[in-house]
Structures are given as structure tokens and as C-alpha cells.
Design a protein around this nucleic acid. Structure first.
Lengths: 334, 334
DNA sequence: ATGTTCACGTCAGATTTTGTCGCAGGAGAT
DNA sequence: ATCTCCTGCGACAAAATCTGACGTGAACAT
């Protein structure tokens, strides 16, 4: 009974890939037969032609003489169920957030979705999505540096290696150094920090994990061999201990800080920790107490407040701050 | 000729909304007729029943006696063309980036897409998407504060008001204050800064734009009236001048800074500006020059480096830094 | 009790779908 | 140039389906 043509058409449409890629009617037939649709080649051909009237399907003549089918590369994606206006707004927001932080080539993978969101908003609001886009802004934390560009081919190899736990061979240019070295890499994880992507990995037969900046990899070739993984390796542990200050650790401190002026205000909105308490000390100062991770991010954060903050406890942190400020001031003591 | 049932089914499936919402066969019939499909109600009913075997469609009996149809609320979205593995990876990444920065209710709008990405990755890689998810991390800049929760109903009103340029009435609790006041709000824009969403707007018949923290709005009711907009208002200008330090402005300076130690290193990767130059001064110090916006973000950024940085030019900024550091140090001079 | 509304079963005629066959045009080999 | 093979596509008729019309029964309101 289930010869359901409609469903078959839908399944077939989803099988056709987006434009850099393509598929032949032959292969489609195989795939459909595999899924239990008992039909012939002629039907597939007919279906494709029929669909190409209604959908942005394009054909290209591949190396063989067979016709190859794909979706236009920038055509909007069709969601089932259709994207709701609310979701479209969220996509638009997400674009604002993600775009400045990820390499452009990566973000472009989501363009069909972002575009769909935009055209939906246009229809919704006669004035077009631009009106909406002019009404939202995301102010990133800190200074926005320009994301480092990554070679898409390398990224692809890297993904494959990570997903399949395989080794690859990389040509890598060390920071500052001129020379390019070739490494045998066992990938362990990918860490995005600020605008840079780092590959955490081991090299050759060393056990100690190291990190490579992805944009400094000049060339990458996937190998067949499985990748090694140091025993008990956990990405979070590594990040925490060896790589970056990352607020996932055990060294907790009871922070006690005096804030001067209005700087304290935004801490009411977004607490530093769940147990934070703020006590008004005088018209111009507040005491903040919270249990937090003692990371270098914390110290940066405290330093950035300048004279609006004074660390009271723990004593060790107070000493550190004092020392840093003393040295800083000496730079200007000419 | 174009009685194409298959296409009609697809169009109909897209018309059915996701679960908090629903639609009746009646309304579907109207919509389909509008689109030029000349069919009867019985056909729509039949189609829905047929589809509900193959798709996660559910019925609920609404207030009337009519059956209401929707998609299961957490069912994966179906993309046409199907999501590519590469895109699935990007979605997964995007989730890591966006989730900690936006209110959970907002992010959940994208869950069907995120889930689809995950199940695709699972199929791709026998071990499941969790393996992949364990291999990527995003280290956010600065301390991550907890995003303030926003009432979804309020967010919805707010979106509608912004999109349609309509007024709304809001009950707002001022920072720190106990009392709740009622305002007549003319929305102008939505600004996300760190983990907080701010609504830029004018109130009553005042002309001067102000900002309201969205999570402090207790209640919002959409009105019919059109919203006012001050002449020549531009969101970017406002953000830049009045609201936050935001690197979109005219006051550019020629920054000249001495870096001590390894802090300079990451500036090689992600330049501060397009024209930045770095000169090695000694084994332990570098001189950085760049043309940048003089925002308070810049000053925060410089302060955060502590004793690893010394501002040389412009003179005014050097004085500011000196002054701030002096005052800071005095806090500890007991 | 009666009427109304809605979903759904049934059925026959209309329409579409599909396998088969054959033709035309192009690429490559001889 | 000619032949051969391959692919895409038009045509056709049988098979499968889709669709509107009508009727039934259940739930609810009057």
C-alpha cells in the first residue's frame, strides 16, 4: 500500500545536496530503492524534472555524461514545519552573536537558515527585515578583535580527524617563527577562545597534549591511522589546568571586594555567583561577597575596574593586586 | 495540469505549526484555497490523517469542537535540502556559543534545529554526537555571569511592539527600587550587552531615549497606537554616545602602547585594527601602534593587562591611566 | 427530543502515476 | 566519417490513486 509518491518525493528532495555537491539520478534511484521505494529510473528522472519547475534545483554536467542535480547554493532552506516568526527572530539574533566570533567560512554554513529567517521577517513586516536588523544590536564583551581566517579545506580535514579519531599530518608555522614544520597530529579537541580556534592534540608519540592555533596550520592531510589518546584525558581538565583560565575547576575562594561608585550596579542584574551578597557600605561604596573560581580571568576582571574596586579578601589576592598595581604605576612614574 | 498533490501536501505540512500552536483543518483549507489549490475539506482531513502516520503530527481538541493539529513540540525539524554534516557541526558549535549568552527561553526556539544537528551527527558517527560535543569548547571572554531570565510572554509583546512600531504599556521596577511604576513605552531598539537585554525607548511624550532592562519589566501590554520616534534617531548613534561604549564612533586615536612579557603574543593572531604594527623593543617588551576608537572598553582592556602594559600615546590617555592607577593603588596603601 | 456540527467511512469516476518502449543527440572509439 | 554506447526524454496504456459526494454516528447545545 505504501507506494506513497508524495512521501517519496519529499525524501528524494532531501537527498539532493546543496550546490557545491551534486548527485546523479542513478544514485538517487539506489538510495530510494534502499529505503524500500520500489520504482524505476525513469520515475526518478521524471520527478526531478517536475520538481525543478517548482524548486530551485539546478543541473550540471559532471565529468561523466550523467546529469548531476543540486540545490542552488544560496537558496533558502525549507523547514518542515515552517519557521515560526519567533524562531526567525531568534535566528536573526543568533547571527548577530555568532558572526563576529566564528571564522566567516564556518558561519556561511548557516546562511541558508539565516536567509530564510530574513525573508520570513520581510514578508511579515512589509518594511523588510532590515528594519528589524536596525533595531537589534549585540555589544560584545571587551574589545572585538578580528577573527582569524581559516582555510576551509583545513577545517574540513580537522573536523573529519576529530570526528573519526584519526591522525593527520600538518604543516605548522610556529608563532613568530619563519620555518614551517611538519607534525604527525593526534587530535583531541577544538577550543574556541576569543576569536581564535585552537586544536588540542598530541604530536608524534608524545603523551603530553599541546595546542595548535588552527589558522597557523598551513596544510593538513588526513591519514588512515587511528589517533592516540592519553589515558584519562579530559578536555575540560586540560583546559582548566594547562591551557587557559577557564572557570571549571576546584580552587574556589571567598571573594570580598569593595566597589566604589556605580560600577556595582550591573552586578545586581547578573550575579557573579549564585550565593553572591551585596551590602551597601556608604553612599559611594558597596561590599560584594561571593564564592568564585580563582582564575586569571577573575583577576583581569577586577583589574579592569581600575580605581572603582578594592579587593579585601582573600589576603593572597589582595597582595597580588597590590603588587600588580604598584608595578603598573611605576611605568608612569617618570 | 498543476493539481500536484505532492506539492500540496508539502505546503500543507509546512502550514501546520509547532505544538504550543495549532491549526484546524478548516483554516488549512482556506489557506490552501488561497494558494490556488482547488480542493475540498474532506481531502484536507484525509491528508492530515495520512501524514500523521508518517510524521509526528498530533491532534488536540481545542475549545471549539474542531480538531486542532500541530507538530510535536520537540520533534526534529526537517530541512529541505537535508542538513549537511558540515552544517550540523556548525549548528552544534553555534549552540555552544549562543546558549550561555541568550535567555534560555529564546535559545529554545532553535532547539529543533540543534536537535536535528545532534541526531544527524549521531548517525554519522556511531558513537553519538556526545563524543563530538566533548571535543569542542568555547571559552567566553571575561567572566561569564548568569544570563538574566526573561518572561517569554513579555519578550513576545516586546518583539511585536518593535516589529510593528507600536506602543506598549509596561510595569517596570527600577534598579534597586521597590516600587513598580507603569510607563507608556515607545520602543526603538533592543540591545544585548553581556548577558543583559536592554530596550531602548522613549517614554510617554518625552523625546529623550532611555533604556530599560528587559528582565526588570514585570508586565507588558501591547497597544494599538503607533510608536513615536525622535527625529534622526539612530540606534548606533545612541549606543555610541549615550549608552555604552561601543566601537562605532568617530573619535579615533593613534594608540601607542608598550607591552611587557608574553601578553603581546595574542595580538599577532587577532589584530586590534587593520593597520596595527608591532615592533620588538627588547627581549621583554614590544611597542604596539594602532588606530582605534577611544572607548571605555579600550580603557578596560588596557587596565586588565595590569603591569604588562604601559600607554605611551596619546598623552591624554596616558594621564588617565596614570591617574586611575594611582587612585587604585591608594586603596591598598594601608 | 431535536437540530447542529464535525470527523470519518464508502464508493465510483476522474486523474495521476509508472513501467515499457523507442527515439534523438552526444561522447568517445575505431 | 562512422559506429557504438549511453543517457535523457517523449509517448502510451494499464494500474494505482485521488477526490468530491453522500451518508453515518457521536458529541454537544437548545
Amino acid at each position: 500500500m505504501e507506494k506513497d509518491t508524495s512521501l517519496r518525493l519529499l525524501v528524494m528532495l532531501r537527498m539532493v545536496p546543496r550546490e557545491p555537491f551534486s548527485i546523479t539520478a542513478d544514485l538517487l534511484l539506489d538510495k530510494l530503492n534502499d529505503q524500500g521505494y520500489d520504482i524505476g529510473l525513469r520515475t526518478v528522472q521524471r520527478d526531478l524534472n517536475r520538481c525543478s519547475i517548482k524548486f530551485p534545483l539546478v543541473t550540471s554536467e559532471g565529468e561523466g555524461k550523467q546529469l548531476r542535480w543540486s540545490w542552488e547554493h544560496d537558496s533558502d532552506v525549507m523547514d518542515i514545519p515552517d519557521m515560526s516568526p519567533y524562531t526567525a527572530l531568534t535566528f536573526n539574533l543568533a547571527e548577530h552573536f555568532v558572526a563576529p566570533m566564528l571564522p566567516p567560512k564556518l558561519v556561511s554554513q548557516l546562511n541558508p537558515h539565516f536567509n530564510r529567517a530574513k525573508s520570513l521577517l520581510s514578508k511579515l513586516n512589509g518594511t523588510g527585515w532590515k528594519t528589524w536588523s536596525n533595531k537589534i544590536r549585540h555589544i560584545p564583551r571587551g574589545l572585538t578583535l578580528k577573527p582569524a581566517e581559516i582555510n576551509p579545506a583545513i577545517l574540513e580535514t580537522l573536523y573529519a580527524a576529530l570526528l573519526q579519531d584519526r591522525q593527520f599530518e600538518a604543516e605548522y608555522q610556529k608563532k613568530g617563527a619563519e620555518e614551517i614544520k611538519t607534525y604527525l597530529v593526534h587530535p583531541l579537541g577544538l577550543v574556541f577562545r576569543h576569536e581564535i580556534a585552537y586544536l588540542v592534540c598530541t604530536v608524534k608519540d608524545y603523551q603530553k597534549p599541546i595546542q595548535l592555533a588552527v589558522h597557523r596550520i598551513q596544510k593538513a592531510e588526513l591519514l588512515e591511522e587511528k589517533a592516540n589518546k592519553p589515558e584519562n584525558f579530559k578536555l575540560d581538565d586540560y583546559i582548566n589546568k594547562a591551557m587557559f583560565s577557564y572557570p571549571v575547576g576546584e580552587e574556589e575562594i571567598n571573594l570580598k571586594v569593595r566597589f566604589f561608585g556605580p560600577a556595582i550596579l550591573h552586578l545586581f542584574e547578573t550575579p557573579l555567583s549564585g550565593d553572591q551578597t551585596i551590602i551597601k557600605e556608604s553612599d559611594a561604596s558597596h561590599i560584594l561577597q561571593a564564592r568564585v573560581q580563582n582564575t586569571s580571568e577573575l583577576q583581569w576582571w577586577l583589574l579592569a575596574f581600575g580605581d572603582q574596586v578594592e579587593v579585601i579578601e582573600p589576603q593572597s589576592l589582595r597582595e597580588t593586586m597590590k603588587e600588580v598595581l604598584k608595578k603598573s604605576f611605576q611605568h608612569y612614574a617618570t
